[in-house]
């Protein structure tokens, strides 16, 4: 039975990312605007897809914790009214609680649809689909969008490594003795920025030497089929 089910994932992965992103946008709009009945239907659909695609919960655990905290805040602030005047009084608001639950429900659905989309779409496909979406928007060169997204993802781990190296080197020279926060901000950011800006400079040179130009065809969507 499971082998039969498992076959939907490769199918969903092969599906054109443009169709998937379109479905995602539709689903998101429906989740945000829909009433209770729509939400029930969407939740059902989402659950079925989740069980078919069988996403491993382990991978999405961190996202769940973050979402959980977010939901907790929303629910509590809507259902409880805290008066700051003395004596502290907490009152329960039933209408607010239902309302808060609805909002939480919508957020959970959005998150689960997002995780589905990520589970069946590669990063490269996501970029290509976004570039394709930007194409009809005047004044936005879609190739630049795709290139900048991939550069951003490329720079991110580099920055984290550089930040860790800078922080360790500064701790070795007893930076924690310094209490002045402006000094700490400046001394931490300067080497990080200098170093990563140099990398960006070299990258720009390398791109130019390989004749990068925005006038060529967008890689990704067209070459895929």
């Amino acid at each position: 039975m499971f082998s039969e089910h498992a076959s939907i994932k490769p199918f969903a992965s092969r599906m054109d990312a443009r169709i998937k992103i379109f479905c995602m946008i539709l689903a998101s709009v429906a989740v945000i605007l829909g009433n209770r009945a729509v939400l029930v239907a969407l939740s059902g659909g989402c659950l079925i897809l989740w069980s078919l695609i069988r996403i491993q919960v382990r991978h999405v655990f961190r996202s769940m914790i973050c979402l959980g905290a977010m939901l907790g805040v929303i629910f509590l602030t809507r259902s409880l009214t805290l008066s700051f005047s003395w004596p502290l009084a907490i009152s329960w608001d039933a209408a607010g609680a239902t309302d808060g639950l609805m909002t939480c429900w919508r957020l959970i659905l959005l998150m689960f649809f997002g995780l589905l989309w990520l589970a069946v779409t590669s990063h490269a496909d996501i970029r290509a689909a976004v570039a394709w979406l930007c194409k009809p928007v005047p004044g936005i060169p879609e190739k630049r969008v795709a290139t900048m997204m991939s550069l951003t993802l490329r720079f991110l781990p580099l920055i984290m490594d550089q930040a860790a190296a800078t922080s360790e080197a500064q701790q070795s020279r007893c930076i924690q003795n310094r209490r002045n926060p402006i000094y700490r901000f400046t001394k931490f950011s300067m080497p990080l920025l200098c170093r990563t800006l140099e990398t960006a400079d070299r990258l720009a040179d390398a791109m130019e030497s390989r004749c990068y130009s925005e006038n060529y065809r967008t890689p990704g969507t067209e070459n895929r089929k």
């Binding site: 920055i159 720009a204 990068y212």
Partner: peptide
């Protein structure tokens, strides 16, 4: 191209 690389870098920062 250089500004594009810088802007991507700042997006990552």
């Amino acid at each position: 191209i250089r500004m594009m690389a810088y802007a991507s870098l700042f997006a990552a920062l």
